[in-house]
Structures are given as C-alpha cells and as structure tokens.
C-alpha cells in the first residue's frame, strides 16, 4: 500500500511531482494531432483530386506520393523532414537571398509536416473511395442545371464527400494520435517524452510508461466519443429522409 501511495505521489502537481510535466506533454501531443489534421486533410484532398481527375502527370505524381509515404516508416519520414528538411530550406534560401535570416524547422513543425504527409497519403485514398460514392448521375444532373465545375464541387460533391469519408478519416485520426509519439525521438517534449524524462529521474519506468499508455487510451476514448457525435450530426439529414 505504501508503495502505491508513493507512486501516486510521483504524479503530484508542482516541483516534486511529475503530474504537471506529463499534463503539459499530453497537451503537446493533442496540439500536434490537432495541428496536423487540417494540413493532412487538405493535402490529402488535393492528392485525391490529382489522382481522381488530374492529368497524366498529376495522377502519376499522386500515385507516387501515396506509394512513398505509405511505404516509409513514419519514424524515417520524421527524421528525413527534421534533418534533411532543414538543409533543403537553407539551400533554397541561399539561392534566393544573400545572407539569409535562418528559418528554423523546429521539432513541432517537423512533426506536423511529417505526420501530415503520412496522413495525407492515407486520407487521399479515403477521399478517392468517397469520390466513387458520388454517382456520375449527380454530376451530370448538376451539369444539366448549368452549374460550373467549381460550383458542382462545392454544392454537390463536397457535402456528400465528407460524410462518406468520415469513418475512414476518424480511423486515421486515431492512428495519428498514436503516431505523434514518434516525435519524442526528436526531442519534442510530448506525452511520451515527458514520461521518459520522469523515468530518467524517478527510475520507475513500468509505472510511468503504463500511465502514459493509459493516457493514450483515454485520448482514444475521448476521440471515439467525439467521432460518434460528429457522425450522428453529419448523418442527421439521412436519418430524417429515412424516417
């Protein structure tokens, strides 16, 4: 019992406990996930558009992009962006300006870009599947009504697309949440990294890593509840039509 109590005390807030550090790490994990999402979705949508209705080159690029970022280990993608991306930016800058002001690729941005690229490769496939759910007849109908391509996309395709894509995207979000843990390897003090630092000082690896795992589980549970709520909201029109 004393042992359990002393372990719980390690999670206290303030200078003696690690509760606040781990909470701050959790906040970074969640922030990274949320920052990656819009970036990954937009990129994924564009890649899906390229694969679905682009020209030959666009389709080839889209397929290559998907193959590469679904094939590479996320950890490797992250290290390439973090170390290689910095060098790339510098060389491009050196070509454009004399004595450039350094642009820093910090761990958060590197994580966001790397995870976002992986996310977009997968989500482009989800969008591609969702495109197929929209029947040609609807496109022809909107053409017949005189809608331009852009208006068709906005008024007919998008509203349905995101509903079709939602389950797939929700799944990808849950995967993304877990993959944010990889940024701990490049020193971003996320949930796992904060836990690691706590372990270094307290020498209680089992307890702290278990706590970290449980926090990831709680994040997944909260996400599932949120996703359920969004899905019900997205399908509200369907339900009414069916009733």
């Amino acid at each position: 019992m004393d042992r359990i109590e002393s372990l719980i005390q390690l999670l206290a807030w303030g200078p003696n406990g690690w509760g606040d550090e781990i909470a701050a790490g959790t906040a970074i994990t969640v922030a990274l996930g949320i920052a990656t999402l819009p970036f990954g979705l937009l990129l994924g949508f564009l890649i899906a558009l390229a694969k679905h209705s682009g020209g030959r080159t666009a389709r080839m690029f889209g397929n290559l992009y998907t193959t590469v970022f679904r094939g590479l280990p996320e950890l490797l993608t992250l290290l390439i962006i973090y170390y290689g991306g910095q060098r790339l930016i510098q060389e491009v800058q050196a070509l454009l300006v004399e004595d450039p002001e350094p642009i820093e690729v910090n761990a958060f941005v590197a994580g966001m870009v790397a995870l976002g690229m992986v996310f977009s490769a997968y989500s482009s496939e989800v969008f591609l599947g969702a495109f197929k759910g929209i029947t040609i007849g609807q496109i022809e109908a909107s053409r017949a009504l005189g809608l331009s391509r852009l208006l068709t996309l906005r008024l007919v395709v998008l509203p349905q697309l995101w509903r079709f894509a939602l389950p797939g995207i929700a799944n990808l979000w849950l995967i993304l949440l877990k993959e944010t843990s990889l940024v701990s390897v490049i020193a971003l003090p996320d949930l796992l990294r904060s836990t690691f630092i706590a372990v270094g000082v307290t020498k209680e690896p089992f307890f702290f890593f278990l706590v970290a795992c449980l926090i990831y589980l709680v994040l997944a549970m909260i996400s599932s509840i949120g996703i359920g709520w969004i899905e019900r909201w997205a399908n509200r029109g369907e339900r009414r039509a069916g009733a």
Partner: peptide, 16 residues
Amino acid sequence: MAQDWDGIIPALKAKK
C-alpha cells in the same frame, strides 16, 4: 536551448 545529442551538430549547422 536543449537538443538531443544525436542531432546536436546537424542543428548547429542548421543555425538553430
């Protein structure tokens, strides 16, 4: 600023 040991020279060259 703190930086992981493995990346400490690359980050200097990258002007962090």
